[in-house]
Amino acid sequence: MAPDKYYKSQHVVSQGPLGSFWSKLAHGFAPPIMEGDFCPVNFSGSHGVSIKISKLNKSFGATHVLKDIDLIIEPGETFSIIGPSGTGKSLLLKHIVKLEKADSGQILINDHDVNEPQDKNLPRNFRYSMVFQSSALFNSLTVGENVGLWLRENRIYGEVRIRRIIREKLRLVGLAGKEEMRTEELSGGMKKRVAIARSLAMEPDLILYDEPTAELDPVTSDELARVIMSLKEKVKLTTIIVSHDLNFALYLSDRVAMMHGGEIIAIGTPSEIKKSQNPIVRNFIYTTTKGIKGEGD
């Protein structure tokens, strides 16, 4: 990426000398990186990224967990990976966000190999974020502090702007005014939404959901589906959902892949997957209660 794509600071925040001192004492003495003329982070909004996975293999000892995974996901697409538990869906997700390293194969995000070192002199042209199965919120922090963690830790903005972003992201997931709540006071669905807000605070170009409906009742799952749907309309990012909740995946996705035994055995639109003649796919989807969005309206 050429230097002319460095991004000029749009949101410099000035604080009074006293306020500034206490703010620094509370949040550390390093200045926000957006105070300079140029910022190494592109904050011009989320842009969907393309993902290309080719011949990805992963083994743990003698167990071959991921077998020659080939997958292409288009920019802005909502893509779901379904399949029974223990087929390597979450592991595939962890490879995309570099939490695991493949034995062989390649993952390209916007044609950049995720395992290749990044040139530190150039801004990265994408960001990704993951919503974990357990939400993975930090119990020692409030809801607002969880949401603003990335911004504060990476000194992206000054404190006033960060608070504004926290409010904005919480409103986006339907949790306006909950900044001061402790995470242990939240229900499972609220925790998931806080985790989504925390991810959105990064303005990611790619967001990954690992079993978003796990441990949630059907009503809360529906609420979560609505949140993800509204995000899909408001924020143009690429979304990957790993789930064994078929209804949820078919309802939200542009395309769906089914994994079985570490391999992708079927891929297509929700309609195509529903009509698949593959006996394993048919066996997995023989019951649907919600149907596919737009079908039979």
Binding site: V97, M130, S134, W150, R198
Partner: peptide
């Protein structure tokens, strides 16, 4: 998974 979450938050 909070440590994994930190890593994905680039922390």
């Amino acid at each position: 998974e909070e440590i994994d979450a930190l890593k994905t938050l680039e922390i």
